[in-house]
C-alpha cells in the first residue's frame, strides 16, 4: 500500500513536468495545427543560459526566473523567424519545419559550445526527503507537484477568465471566425507561443534541476515526452494534454516498479508499447476530439 502511494507521488512528480510540456505543445497545436518538434529547444536554450549563469555564480533564485523568461523569448523568436513563415501550410510542412528548427538549435550549440556535457549544480535541498510515516517523499517532487498545480490553476484562470484566454480558445476552435470578431491573428498566435514558452520554462526549471546538465540534443527527450503526452490525451484537447502528461508519468513509475529487476532498464520501451496499444484501441487518444470529415 505504502509502496503504491510512494509510486503515485513519484509518478505525479514526473507527470507534472510532462503535463506542463504537453500543455504547451497542445496550445500551439490548437491554434495553428503545428505539432512542435522544436518544443524541447525551449529547455535546451534556457539550459545553456543556466549553465552560463551558473558559471557566473548565479543562485537558483535568480536562475529560475531567468530560465522562464528565456524560454518565453526563445518561443517567440522561433515563431517569428520560422513558424510565422509556414502559417497555413500543410501539417507535413509545419512538422518538418519544427524538426528543422530543432536541428538548427542543436547544431548551433554543437558549433559554438561543443558536444560536451555541461554540468549545472543542483540546489542544496535537491536530494532532501521528508518522511511521512513509511513514506519518503522527495522535497523536489513536492515542489514540482505544488508548482505545477499552481501553474495549471493560473493557466485555467487565464483561459477561462481573461479576454486573451477567450480569444485563444476562440481562435483554436475556428481561426477565421475569431478574426471576423476582431481577434488579431498575429497577437493571438504570439500569445499562444508565449504561453507555450512560459509553460515550457516552468517545466524547464525542474527538468534542468533534475538532470543537472545540458547537451546540444537535450531537447529531444522533453520534446518527445511532451508530444507523446499531448497525443495520449488527444491532440487538440488542452485537458487531454494535462491528463496525458500525468498518465505518462505514472505509467513510467508504476511500470518500473512492477517489472522484474532484470528487464527494468527496458521500462521506456514498455511504455512505448503501451502507448502503441492505446493508439490501436483508441486512435484519438484518451479525450479524443471528434473529427468531422468535410465532404
Amino acid at each position: 500500500m505504502s509502496e503504491l502511494l510512494q509510486n503515485l507521488i513519484d509518478g505525479l512528480g514526473r507527470g507534472s513536468i510532462y503535463a506542463l510540456l504537453a500543455l504547451g505543445v497542445a496550445v500551439v497545436f490548437g491554434i495553428m495545427h503545428l505539432l512542435n518538434f522544436a518544443h524541447g529547444e525551449l529547455i535546451t536554450i534556457p539550459g545553456y543560459l543556466a549553465y552560463w549563469a551558473f558559471t557566473n555564480d548565479w543562485t537558483w533564485w535568480a536562475l529560475a526566473p531567468a530560465i522562464i523568461v528565456s524560454a518565453v523569448l526563445a518561443s517567440l523568436v522561433i515563431e517569428r523567424i520560422a513558424f510565422s513563415r509556414v502559417r497555413g501550410a500543410t501539417d507535413f510542412t509545419m512538422l518538418l519545419t519544427s524538426f528543422g528548427v530543432h536541428f538548427i538549435v542543436a547544431a548551433g550549440f554543437l558549433l559554438y559550445v561543443g558536444a560536451g556535457v555541461k554540468q549545472i549544480e543542483r540546489p542544496g535541498w535537491f536530494a532532501n526527503t521528508v518522511s511521512l510515516g513509511s513514506l519518503n517523499i522527495e522535497v523536489f517532487d513536492l515542489i514540482v507537484i505544488g508548482a505545477t498545480f499552481a501553474v495549471l490553476g493560473a493557466t485555467t484562470w487565464l483561459l477561462q477568465r481573461t479576454m486573451f484566454g477567450l480569444a485563444l480558445r476562440a481562435a483554436a476552435s475556428d481561426f477565421d471566425t475569431a478574426r471576423l470578431m476582431g481577434v488579431k491573428s498575429d497577437s493571438v498566435i504570439r500569445g499562444a507561443f508565449a504561453l507555450s514558452g512560459f509553460l515550457a520554462g516552468i517545466a524547464g526549471v525542474f527538468w534542468i534541476m533534475r538532470e543537472g546538465q545540458v547537451t546540444p540534443s537535450a531537447g529531444i527527450n522533453p520534446m518527445l515526452q511532451g508530444v507523446l503526452a499531448a497525443l495520449i490525451g488527444g491532440l487538440g484537447s488542452l485537458r487531454g494534454a494535462v491528463l496525458g502528461g500525468f498518465v505518462l508519468g505514472l505509467a513510467e513509475v508504476l511500470l518500473r516498479s512492477w517489472l522484474p529487476v532484470d528487464i527494468q532498464n527496458l521500462t521506456t520501451g514498455f511504455v512505448f508499447v503501451m502507448i502503441a496499444l492505446l493508439f490501436i484501441f483508441r486512435p484519438g487518444g484518451l479525450l479524443s476530439v471528434p473529427q468531422v470529415e468535410r465532404v
Binding site: L166, R169, A170, S173, D174, D176, T177, A178, L180
Partner: peptide, 11 residues
C-alpha cells in the same frame, strides 16, 4: 455573421 453561424461550440 458568417454562413452556418460558426459559433464557438465549446464556449
Amino acid at each position: 455573421v458568417p454562413e452556418h453561424r460558426r459559433i464557438f461550440a465549446d464556449m
